[in-house]
């Protein structure tokens, strides 16, 4: 255990902790854009600069390990000035179209600009503009909003093992893109979208589906493979407008293309909305009572005529445990046969 002082507060930290982690654990907030707890540190945004006694220049707290008796100051006037300058610089090369940005209200850059009161741009100058849009169907890549924090690059490499994107060009023209600036063609897991601190990466499905205000967030479990990733459905007006996953879940917030972007079937116009009975080869919409009465009487007849074992039930690996329990209980207790199975083998 290491003892250090941060902003006059005595803090105890583990020896492998960074100054940033130690500060945040002690309830002292330090702003960051490029840092992400699940990724290796980058040190590029420079917002987490702090002063440490005995070190002549400000250092990034996200990369500096705690040291015994270290004295850290996280918000001296000089440091605050540097942060403001950095934010001013970032915003001087940013569309600043928060009013129509998908990310507004959920954007780290916007939050920091608010917190540090960056209302004016002291720098007139060029802003990167890009004409072409990425043609992939999943991820909106608005590179004008990219602050090159590298989180997307790192998550794609370190977590997903794909490496679909990286830095290209130099200087002010530096940019993050797929090889040769082609359209993104990757696993579309959207991990990059999840870690993007600005509006540079968003889901194409999210567009114009609603602001973060009055969104009902429901934690649940993915309906696809057997991994059982925990996810959060963002619901507005009885519509799922976005899916994400919290970093605190066992799946660490990581999802796949299906889990993250495969939700719109829920509101598909193809959904069955009324019971149907086939009459003379054609489906007719009927009431629940009619459908259920018809089914029950048919079943009863068949059981009577051919015995319970002439009836079978296929339950579903897609349905809940409770529904499966109920289904097999129905087949076993109400019908009277063990002819019940599901698609485990298929």
């Amino acid at each position: 255990m290491i003892n250090l002082t941060i902003d006059g507060k005595n803090v105890i930290a583990g020896k492998d902790m960074t100054v940033l982690d130690a500060a945040r654990r002690a309830g002292i907030s330090i702003p960051t854009l490029c840092h992400h707890p699940k990724l290796t540190s980058f040190g590029g945004c420079r917002l987490c600069l702090v002063e440490i006694e005995g070190i002549p220049r400000p250092v990034t707290s996200c990369t500096t390990l705690v040291g015994e008796n270290m004295v850290v100051k996280t918000s001296t006037p000089h440091i605050v000035e540097l942060r403001k300058t950095i934010l001013e610089l970032l915003l001087s090369d940013h569309p600043n179209d928060c009013m129509v940005c998908e990310k507004a209200g959920d954007c780290t850059l916007q939050d920091l600009a608010y917190y540090y009161g960056i209302s004016e741009n002291p720098y007139e100058g060029e802003r990167r503009t890009y004409e072409t849009r990425d043609g992939n169907p999943f991820i909106e890549r608005d590179m004008e909003k990219c602050i090159l924090c590298s989180r997307c690059v790192k998550v794609c490499d370190e977590v997903q093992g794909v490496g679909a994107i990286d830095f290209a060009y130099r200087g002010f023209q530096s940019k993050i893109c797929p090889p040769f600036e082609r359209d993104l063609d990757c696993e579309f897991c959207g991990q990059c979208v999840a870690v993007c601190p600005t509006g540079a990466l968003t889901g194409k499905l999210w567009a114009h589906k609603g602001r973060q205000k009055n969104v009902n967030k429901v934690d649940t479990v993915c309906t696809y493979c057997g991994t059982g990733c925990n996810l959060t459905l963002h619901v507005k007006n009885n519509d799922i407008i976005r899916v994400d996953s919290a970093m605190s879940t066992w799946n660490e917030g990581w999802l796949c293309a299906k889990g993250r972007f495969g939700y719109s079937f829920v509101s598909s116009p193809d959904r069955l909305k009324t019971p149907l009975i086939k009459k003379r080869g054609k489906f007719k919409e009927v009431s629940w009572d009619e459908a259920l009465d018809f089914t029950a009487s048919k079943l009863k007849n068949i059981i009577k005529k051919h015995g319970a074992d002439s009836v079978g039930g296929l339950s579903s690996a897609r349905c809940t445990t409770e529904e499966n329990y109920l289904f097999q209980k129905f087949i076993r207790a109400a019908v009277g046969t063990n002819n019940v199975d599901h698609c485990a083998r298929l």
Partner: peptide
């Protein structure tokens, strides 16, 4: 590695012809 979200639950709950829950 089970291929479907609740294939384990369906088995556990007895949606199998030879076993109860």
């Amino acid at each position: 590695l089970r291929g479907q979200n609740n294939v384990q639950g369906a088995c556990d709950a007895g949606a199998l012809p030879n076993v109860y829950p």
